[in-house]
């Protein structure tokens, strides 16, 4: 599985990278904003994308719209601090396959990726 990590926080990108090391995941890139993420999706067609919402420039929800246009098979997991239900529903409506609220620890990521991988196997 090839993963793209999108978050404007460098610390957060490295936390996700560290916690997902035990999975058979190849991290094919990291992006700090939506525009950078869209470029990487076009070039590298990742299988899975972790996507923050609050980012400078193109935010995560606008980025999700672009990703669904250019690479609709990508499985996007939103990882955001925005803990209201409406934002979660909007993201799922736009095509996100999973949703995690920050703060996110190793256990949260493991459960979320287990669910995502099981869904992959069933398809």
């Amino acid at each position: 599985m090839r993963l793209l990590i999108v978050d404007d926080s460098s610390i957060m990108r490295r936390i996700i990278e560290k916690h997902l090391n035990e999975y058979e995941i190849e991290i094919i890139g990291m992006a700090a904003d939506g525009n950078e993420a869209v470029d990487l999706v076009k070039k590298k067609k990742p299988d899975v994308i972790t996507l923050d919402i609050t980012m400078p420039g193109m935010d995560g929800l606008a980025c999700l719209d672009e990703i669904m246009k250019i690479h609709p098979k990508a499985k996007v997991m939103i990882i955001t601090a925005l803990a209201d239900k409406l934002t979660g529903l909007r993201a799922l409506d736009k095509g996100a396959r999973g949703f995690l609220y920050k703060p996110v620890n190793a256990g949260d990521l493991a459960k979320a990726f287990d669910r995502l991988l099981k869904r992959n196997e069933n398809k």
């Binding site: 609050t54 601090a81 920050k102 703060p103």
Partner: peptide
């Protein structure tokens, strides 16, 4: 970011936060 964003669980999406 996380502390302010989590408050939206109670205050809703109209409590808008910047980067």
């Amino acid at each position: 970011n996380v502390v302010a964003g989590n408050v939206r669980a109670n205050l809703g999406a109209n409590f808008m936060i910047s980067v």
